[in-house]
Amino acid sequence: MDFQWTQDQVDLKNMTQEFIAKEVAPYAGEMDAAGGMRPGLQEKFHEMGLLNLIVPEEYGGPGLDAMTVALLYEEIGKGCAGVATSIAANALAAYPVLLLGTDAQKKFFFDKLNGGKLAAFALTEPNAGSDAGGRCYVGCKGRQ
């Protein structure tokens, strides 16, 4: 596997750096204190094509490979980890549909994401907290 960045990756990285330097980093402390993104920031991520990085081309997305997606999330995280987590969390909801959804489900779901909508991924389970494997490590009264 070649780990050298392509010119396209470098261009996307630079575009993302510029966007983050202007729209995210100067407001990171303010957003942390407020506990949320600035009004309109989600829409700006959508306009820049940075909201739904894992949507395949056949469903109207950018069709980026995992290395490029990781590179861009890293750049977003340099500006504000909370914003990066919120933006990247869309992929958590998208991957199950991508991997196991029917073509009709994928089209329906990815049309929403491509339109600027956010998705959610629920992980909490009864008696297991946020451990999707169902293992309990603290306070589980004998469960292993």
Rank of each mutant, 00 (worst) to 15 (best):
N90Q: 11
L98F: 12
C80N: 15
P96W: 12
M48C: 04
M48I: 01
A119N: 10
L92M: 14
F121N: 09
P56E: 09
D111N: 12
A128Q: 13
G63I: 12
V83C: 15
L51N: 00
P126E: 14
L50F: 02
I87A: 05
G61Q: 05
L100V: 05
G129T: 12
T68V: 09
M67E: 12
L99K: 12
L123F: 12
G61H: 06
D111H: 08
K107E: 14
G82M: 15
T124D: 14
G61P: 00
V69A: 01
A128V: 04
L50M: 05
E125L: 15
G101S: 10
G61I: 05
A84V: 04
F109P: 01
G129V: 08
A119I: 03
Y95C: 02
K112T: 02
A119P: 00
V83S: 10
A128F: 05
T68I: 07
D131K: 04
P126A: 11
S130R: 14
A94W: 03
L99R: 15
D131Q: 10
A66G: 07
M48G: 03
N52S: 15
A93C: 13
K106Y: 00
Y73E: 14
P56L: 07
D131T: 10
D65P: 02
N127M: 13
P126R: 14
F109L: 01
T102N: 11
A93L: 07
E125C: 06
L51V: 02
N127G: 09
K106Q: 03
L92Q: 13
A122V: 08
N127K: 14
A66M: 11
E74Y: 07
F121K: 06
A93Y: 04
L100Y: 15
G63L: 09
G116V: 04
G116I: 06
L113R: 01
A81I: 11
L92G: 04
Q105N: 08
A94L: 09
A89P: 00
S86G: 15
T102E: 11
F110Y: 04
L100I: 03
G101R: 08
E125S: 08
T102M: 13
G49V: 00
L53P: 01
F108D: 14
